[in-house]
């Protein structure tokens, strides 16, 4: 994985600090051309991994890239699925089963099981999960997707329920059908590492909040530091600026000094911001290497 991954929250009106800022961003990126311009800027600055939710609008970005493969030779996508609000809103309207049914490409299997009013066999649960994954992956057909993430709302729900086997089903399907590395986004990193270990997912890619002020590092700051030292996994840090609560240099100085960190995902809306983040990380990573903090 690259050191810097380009995220997409800024494009979809996600801002953890201010709804006003979120709406301003949503207005700015109303036209998909504006989104593509920013991705182009990142690409021009040498950031060639786009980590994106499976939001409907990403499909247009995929179409754009597919039509110009020579222009984007190095560009790769890290899909993260599903776009959670799509399911949450559907669940309020149709209930959990209705929501699942709404996003299934074909209705046969699930409807038959529901009509029968009985439990599904294990292979059916796997079938259902893989159908949902395939539906989300459809938009990336023909593009490079070497890593596929499961979104935190789903990961943390399964984690809380104790349905850890689902992580295994996801991992196996992503590996076998997409030749991709399975990856997990979570707000409960220390606890998730234990669960992944339990179902035999070795050296997993895990993306989690990592910032100096401990914002949304659930389970406690110390547990995170401890897990980073002791667990074998590939760490991807997100929310490193804590939604803007920490000044960039201060935030990155702290993050880049953490042990066993492989990548940082960040979002930005202007080329100047992308460049300054990249320059800062380049500088700090050199220091990190000199200090011997890095794993690789």
């Amino acid at each position: 994985m690259d050191r810097l991954l380009f995220g997409d929250n800024q494009f979809f009106g996600v801002n953890h600090m201010s709804e006003e800022k979120a709406r301003t961003q949503a207005l700015r990126f109303q036209d998909i051309g504006a989104v593509i311009d920013v991705i182009d800027s990142a690409y021009a600055e040498g950031i060639s991994t786009f980590m994106c939710t499976t939001h409907d609008r990403i499909e247009q970005v995929c179409d754009h890239v597919r039509a110009r493969t020579s222009q984007y030779e190095d560009l790769q996508f890290f899909p993260s699925m599903p776009y959670a609000h799509k399911y949450a809103n559907a669940m309020t309207e149709d209930g959990p089963l209705g929501a699942i049914r709404r996003f299934l490409p074909e209705e046969g299997l699930f409807d038959a099981a529901l009509r029968g009013g009985r439990s599904l066999a294990t292979k059916d649960i796997e079938g259902l999960t893989t159908l949902l994954i395939d539906a989300e992956m459809k938009m990336f057909k023909g593009l490079r997707t070497p890593v596929v993430f499961l979104q935190n709302v789903v990961v943390d729900l399964l984690l809380g329920l104790g349905f850890h086997q689902a992580f295994r089903i996801f991992a196996d399907h992503v590996r076998s059908s997409y030749q991709a590395e399975p990856a997990f986004i979570t707000m409960n990193m220390p606890r998730l590492l234990v669960a992944l270990d339990e179902v035999g997912i070795e050296n997993p890619i895990v993306c989690f909040n990592l910032n100096k002020i401990g914002f949304r590092m659930s389970g406690g700051f110390d547990a995170y530091e401890d897990a980073m030292r002791r667990h074998e996994f590939r760490a991807v840090a997100m929310s490193v600026f804590a939604s803007g609560a920490i000044p960039p240099r201060e935030a990155l100085e702290w993050v880049c000094a953490q042990p066993n960190l492989e990548s940082i995902v960040f979002g930005a809306s202007s080329r100047a911001n992308i460049r300054s983040t990249r320059d800062l990380v380049d500088e700090l990573w050199t220091q990190r290497a000199a200090a011997g903090a890095g794993a690789a």
Binding site: G160, M187, R216
Partner: peptide, 9 residues
């Protein structure tokens, strides 16, 4: 916001 033990939503 106070940190929590387990975060879901």
């Amino acid at each position: 916001t106070e940190p929590v033990w387990y975060y879901l939503r």
